[in-house]
Design a protein around this nucleic acid. Structure first.
Length: 861
RNA sequence: GCCGCCGUAGCUCAGUGGUAGAGCGCAUCCUUGGUAAGGCUGAGGUCCAGGGUUCGAGUCCCUGCGGUGGCACCA
């Protein structure tokens, strides 16, 4: 009996799949529904890590399963290839970013191919291919024509380490998402995509994405931050300051509490505050103090509310004789709403904190249910719940929602403002001051201004001789590239040297995959056939960034008539990370898993250095990272255990959406499973088998097999791959119970049928092993071309079932009954059973509950 | 502060209102021509705590505790 040898079998089957081109997506075919499976494409860093293995193994299970179920499957792969790491490598090692990137792609491609993924490699492309980014320039110019692309000077987030601008989405806790550097504010001329035009649609259609995790939808909803309210102007009581003759505009979501107004506040960088500061040194000093506050989240959290009374007053819109003081307050944000608010301390915690500190009025106007208007008071906690409006003249007695509408109507009737929807979402700044990216296809002409290039001038290719030896924009530095002629007037002009954010590159690649050779950016017929992606798989870290941009670009391109899909990804699955225990020496140094051995002392797990035997501290389980030295290189695992065992293990241990812990013991368990499967298949003698009388063992194997088919089908459809794999382990135990040696002919036949199904069931997880088993079992063709096995519902349960019998909910015995026995019949059997009746002596039976094929419960007293 | 998720065997985790499960680890034994191994058998459970719904709760509801993730002066 030969041991299973993945080093021999795995390359053999990959070659067989390649030769048969089995994974190339077919043309539309009647009766063969399409299914588009896509994993987030990788950045070509040069090395495959375990996170990639899990991500692509997950997607591959779906793709192979859907193929077996008769779908026309598209499962492509490409490279998110522009971006800073290439420039950093260029700077550190003096290599050419383009060569570095394509070398990495070559290496990672061969590693990914080694994984045995069912990918249609004929569609592969990289975003740094001129054929791709040239088409991106083409649709960028289409959006330019419609006004969705625009340029403005604005305050931007500047990453001082990467020396580039970042979008709001790319600033996390005041730091750059890649570099971790504290982000600075700078005023720059910038290119923007008008994502805010789609804010309502992006928020509304989240409801249609019913195969997305709620968590991601909530995160996008929060990010878009739609709020409905009222925008209106306060008139100044006394002569208005210059520039404010029209009044001071504020935004509120609580117009119902207008009669509880206590003061009006503006942000420290509000134009009014700046105007006052210009003449008032105390105000200027206050504003400077506000700016000194740190930008980090912790500092913002703990920052005390401080204010400055401007001495100005405004008139309450419903009672012009009522004067409200105008304060400058540090808790008001210039970039939300209008940068100015009216404060109702009784019903807003921030306003209340401020009012208590400065002794401003606190007048409740919403009466909580059950409270007495004569005695209700607000202490240190604002009341933000529902209730009846009081102390509010004509609004009295209304509920909160009705009062909001009434107050808005009133303001609108006075022509002082109107109902408004405000978003937290900002337009997407897409220009980056980088050389290794997609050039923005416009020129700057001294006479004509900003001129978009005509289609005939595309693509705008990057030069091959960029110098990346120092920080900054290599494209800007290039001696000749930017010098060109204006396409309108022919005069000397300069090319735009900014390139596009790499999130633009990844915002439409899924559409390009539907026909990567199209002469237009998107082949509409192909896109309309394949889109939306039926199942998208990737990390939760892109919940807002990539997934929001891709949704927006899809909608924008659809509005240009370039495709018809309303959403890019109908189903989204966010997988967890691969983690590993950490180990340190007593001195605190991290130790790599391969340098240590684990052992047990009783129930305690311990670790020691292999080289010296030095005891180690077993630390926390953390995401694999180089800094903690808790990484495991996939290729080393493939070398020892084969690809199938590695794939199986990353899918077996945890539900796919949760983190999974890599361990050597775990992959060894998977490796043993691979060998046991092979041993089981090899021990099965070749058919045909003699006919013989049926036998209970044959029946057990048959029923077990049909139960397994049902369970696996359901497990894959509901992303419970780990549960499905657990069932594979259980079924293998059953097969070992009923082994081939000495088996009856009936059992041999049942085993043969079960093993044939088993080979197809393991194929999505361990595809090479499945092929090897398929051949060994005497089946023809490839298992990837075999249909998914069906199950007979009648065979998914035992002929005779054991029913536990409870008395008053406590287990008191059991009976054997034929499967599917009617409750009345079972009840009779139970009440005839001497063991049960003995338990019921002296009790009166109130009720007998029979759950078919599950349990019997007798309620007695 | 707000919104999630998690808490089940020593560890990592399944578990669909109806008999408490898997892998690894641990123990015993067998095998030593499957051997850088393989196999048999077994022990091990306050299903985080408390309350509720139910004939019946690991599962549904409420409260609390612990862990973890996301969002957050967003008017």
């Amino acid at each position: 009996m030969a041991r299973y040898n993945p080093k021999e079998t795995e390359p053999k089957w990959r070659a067989a799949w390649d030769a048969a081109k089995v994974f190339e997506a077919g043309p539309p075919a009647p009766g063969k529904p399409k299914y588009y499976v896509l994993e987030m494409f990788p950045y070509p860093s040069g090395r495959l890590h375990m996170g990639h293995v899990r991500n692509y193994a997950l997607g591959d299970v779906i793709a192979r399963f859907k193929r077996a179920r008769g779908f026309n499957v598209l499962h492509p792969m490409g490279w998110d290839a522009f971006g800073l790491p290439a420039e950093n490598a260029a700077m550190e090692r003096g290599v050419d970013p383009k060569a570095w990137t394509y070398d990495n792609i070559a290496r990672m491609r061969s590693e990914l191919k080694e994984l045995g993924l069912s990918i249609d490699w004929s569609r592969e492309f990289a975003t740094c291919d001129l054929a791709y980014y040239g088409q991106q320039q083409a649709w960028f110019l289409e959006l330019f024509k419609t006004g969705l692309v625009y340029r403005k000077e604005g305050v931007v987030n500047w990453d001082p380490v990467d020396q580039t601008v970042l979008a709001n989405e790319q600033v996390v806790d005041g730091r750059g998402w890649r570099s971790g550097a504290v982000v600075e504010k700078r005023k720059l001329n910038q290119w923007f995509l008008r994502i805010t035009d789609y804010a309502n649609d992006l928020a509304d259609s989240l409801a249609t994405l019913d195969r997305w995790p709620d968590k991601v939808r909530t995160m996008q909803e929060n990010w878009i931050g739609r709020s409905k309210g009222l925008r209106f102007k306060f008139n100044f009581s006394d002569p208005a300051p210059p520039d404010f003759a029209e009044g001071l505009e504020v935004y509120t979501t609580r117009p119902d509490t207008l009669y509880g107004a206590s003061f009006v506040g503006v942000a420290p960088d509000h134009p009014l505050a700046e105007q006052i500061a210009a003449q008032n040194p105390a105000a200027a000093e206050f504003i400077a103090a506000c700016r000194k506050g740190g930008a980090s989240q912790a500092e913002i959290d703990t920052a005390e509310k401080i204010g400055f009374d401007t001495g100005l007053t405004v008139a309450h819109p419903f009672d012009p004789s009522w004067r409200l003081p105008v304060w400058i307050a540090n808790f008001i944000l210039m970039d939300y709403g209008t940068g100015a608010i009216f404060a109702c301390p009784a019903h807003d915690q921030r306003d209340l904190d401020f009012a208590r500190k400065y002794g401003l009025a606190v007048k409740p106007v919403v009466l909580p249910p059950g409270e007495d208007p004569a005695t209700f008071e607000v202490g240190d906690e604002a009341y933000t719940g529902p209730g009846r409006i009081f102390n509010s003249q004509d609004l009295d007695g209304l509920d909160v929602e009705t009062a909001k509408a009434a107050a808005i109507a009133k303001i609108e009737a006075q022509d002082q403002g109107q109902g408004a929807t405000v978003f937290r979402l900002r337009d997407w700044g897409v220009a980056r001051q980088r050389g290794w990216g997609c050039p923005i296809p416009v020129v700057h002409c001294p006479a004509c201004g900003v001129v978009p290039l005509p289609a005939s001038a595309l693509p705008v290719a990057l030069p091959d001789d960029l110098e990346f030896g120092k920080p900054g924009n290599a494209l800007e530095r290039h001696p000749t590239w930017k010098h060109t002629a204006c396409p309108t007037c022919g005069a000397a002009a300069l090319r735009e040297t900014d390139t596009l954010d790499t999130f633009v590159d990844s915002s439409w690649y899924f559409a390009r995959f539907t026909n990567p050779d199209s002469a237009s950016p998107i082949d509409k017929a192909a896109a309309d056939y394949w889109l939306p992606v039926d199942q998208y798989v990737g990390g939760i870290e892109h919940a807002v960034l990539h997934l929001l941009y891709a949704r927006f670009v899809t909608k924008a391109l659809a509005d240009q008539g370039m495709l018809s899909a309303k959403e890019p990804f109908a189903g989204l699955f966010t997988q967890g990370m691969v983690t590993h225990e950490t180990y340190r020496r007593q001195s605190g140094e991290w130790v790599e898993p391969k340098d240590l051995e684990l052992y047990s002392e009783g129930q305690t797990r311990r670790a020691r250095l292999i080289a010296t035997g030095e005891p180690l501290v077993v630390g926390d389980i953390e995401k694999m990272s180089k800094s903690k030295k808790n990484t495991v290189a996939p290729e080393e695992i493939f070398e020892v255990y084969g690809v199938d065992a590695a794939r199986l293990f990353v899918l077996s241990d945890s539900p796919p959406e949760r983190d999974t812990q890599w361990s050597n013991a775990g992959v060894e368990g998977a490796w043993r499973f691979v060998n046991r499967v092979w041993a089981e298949v090899e021990s099965q003698p070749a058919g045909p088998y003699e006919t013989g009388p049926d036998d209970p063992a044959a029946d057990a194997v048959r029923r077990g097999s049909h139960r397994l088919i049902k369970a696996m089908t359901e497990a894959i459809e509901s992303f419970r791959f780990n549960s499905g794999i657990a069932r594979l382990y259980e079924f293998l135990n059953l097969m070992k119970e009923h082994k081939a040696q000495g088996a009856s002919s009936a059992l041999l036949a049942a085993r043969a049928e079960a093993l044939s199904a088993f080979a197809r069931l393991i194929a999505p997880f361990t595809p090479h092993l499945a092929e090897e088993c398929w051949v060994q079992l005497g089946q023809s063709g490839l298992v990837v071309d075999a249909p998914w096995p069906d199950f007979d519902p009648a065979l998914t349960q035992d002929a005779v079932v054991t029913l536990p019998v409870q008395v008053n909910g406590k287990r008191r015995g059991e009976i054997q009954a034929p499967a599917g026995a009617e409750p009345a019949e079972v009840e009779k059997m139970v009440l005839d059973d001497p063991e049960i009746t003995r338990r019921l002596e002296g009790l009166t039976i109130r009720k007998v509950i029979v759950v078919k094929d599950r349990i019997v419960n007798i309620v007695a007293a």
